[in-house]
């Protein structure tokens, strides 16, 4: 994945401390993400561990997948609260979100390993919002993420939210992950 200037799509909203066991429960870690067909399977089980009342806020009980496509979700952007991706180091977590079609997460802040895996693996863009958005944005809202402007527009609610700059990880995300980045910098043979 390389950085797209604009990401538009529906929001799926979650709360605080969404840990990697909720993002991809341990029984599905037997799939090997290095095998394309198995990579696809992770999309099916993405967010399978989120208790139903906490899935798709503010109402909850919103399925992440729509009938008709068990692998790719109709949502493109996850909006969440504090400490997204805490817990286990499993890279299967950003893999599962990527396989389910998620292009970006907008959270207050991230657990370190999830953030690093998302960036270095080039799976999705982990944006930090300047303010807490998981109490503001509703699941299903149409969002438009503008990289250059560093803004998140809510086309449904006609609101605009500020995002924190990606900072030092921007070049890695732009390159598409740590391997293409390292090659572009001559740290690895091209």
């Amino acid at each position: 994945m390389t950085l797209q200037p604009v990401i538009q799509g529906k929001a799926y909203v979650l709360g605080d401390n969404i840990d990697t066991d909720q993002i991809i429960p341990a029984q599905y870690l037997t799939f090997n993400p290095a095998i394309p067909e198995e990579y696809r399977q992770f999309g099916k089980y993405a967010l399978a561990g989120v208790p139903a009342p906490q899935g798709g806020l503010p109402k909850g009980h919103v399925p992440f997948h729509a009938p008709g496509d068990e692998f790719v979700s109709p949502y493109r952007i996850i909006v969440a609260g504090r400490n997204f991706g805490c817990g286990s180091s499993r890279e299967h977590a950003p893999v599962a979100l990527d396989a389910a079609g998620i292009k970006a997460v907008v959270a207050e802040f991230y657990a370190r390993i999830f953030f690093r895996n998302s960036v270095n693996g080039g799976y999705l863009i982990p944006f930090e919002s300047a303010k807490r958005l998981c109490d503001t944005v509703c699941t299903g809202d149409e969002l438009r993420l503008d990289m250059a402007a560093g803004k998140l527009e809510n086309l449904t609610a006609r609101e605009s939210y500020e995002l924190r700059p990606l900072g030092e990880v921007a070049p890695i995300l732009e390159a598409g992950g740590i391997f293409p980045y390292a090659r572009s910098k001559g740290l690895l043979k091209a």
């Binding site: 290095a34 390993i113 690093r116 895996n117 270095n120 693996g121 992950g177 740590i178 690895l188």
Partner: peptide, 18 residues
Amino acid sequence: TGIGNTDAGFVLGTGKTW
């Protein structure tokens, strides 16, 4: 510290990480 597959794959090849 803990790392993911991509970082670990990078270390396997280079012995380095950032």
